[in-house]
Design a protein around this nucleic acid. Structure first.
Lengths: 132, 132
DNA sequence: GTCCCTGCAAAAGTTTTGCATTGCG
DNA sequence: CGCAATGCAAAACTTTTGCAGGGAC
């Protein structure tokens, strides 16, 4: 079972959190999601946002990421399999999608002994702004 | 300049930290490195370990990683370019090394606009113990 | 003597949890 | 009513930083 199929109640707060993450063009932290959600749901508390993010992530409706060297979780509303490019100087993150030859996963399985069923590629470099 | 060429003083404490990370078979957190280093350098403080890890990472003598969904940094003494396989159920991490075709990096550069100069592949699945 | 390093302790920032209240079923 | 969800506040952790003392050069 790749992800919990069980349903959950989509309360107004949870819906707002989900929408904020889906519409975000960047990869916001929990705190940033909280700040943005407050515009739609003024009385919402941080704990509600935090628990909603965990819930949504558990149900595959949102992705939880650890990017760069930062010690904070970031959220991604793009649920389709995709990869990331991180800018070393400024920390900017962009989505990209790279298809890997099937033999790569097979090799990884053979080399590690793990049953590999997914991958994520993380590129690093310099964003256009930092390349100038 | 990929990494700061400037030298730094390899004090006994820093040497002990470096050795602990290099000899670790797992990917210890700063706290774990601290606990292990205390066996060799009994009076050492956590701040010293923490600063040593950052210093070593800055000089490319150690790798700092964010693995899984955890919000803690882990350290890897394997400095050669390599990838990781994470076990979803238990969090175990294994090193693997996968050579990607050159065109992959080129594609990522074209698709993102970033000047991509490195990558890390993160596989996920189940380790042998969790597959039983 | 000067500068860097260490250790202790505290500050800052995130993540997580307890609990009383609220509200939908 | 019964139970899940919310909000507020407080823990529990990690990561960082300030400072005084000590050692290396």
């Amino acid at each position: 079972m790749p992800s919990p199929p069980a349903a959950f109640r989509l309360t107004p707060q949870r819906g707002a959190v989900r929408d904020v993450v889906r519409q975000a063009q960047d990869h916001p932290t929990a705190r940033e999601v909280y700040q943005r959600v407050r515009h739609r749901a003024p009385g919402i508390g941080f704990a509600t946002v935090y628990r909603a993010l965990n819930l949504l992530a558990d149900h595959g409706q949102v992705l939880e990421l650890q990017l760069g060297d930062e010690a904070v979780a970031r959220y991604d509303g793009n649920v389709a399999r995709h990869d990331h490019v991180v800018c070393n100087p400024c920390g900017a993150v962009a989505d990209v999608s790279v298809e890997l030859p099937a033999h790569v996963t097979i090799e990884a399985t053979a080399a590690s002994g793990f049953a590999v069923d997914a991958y994520e590629l993380r590129f690093s470099g310099r964003c256009p702004s930092c390349s100038d």
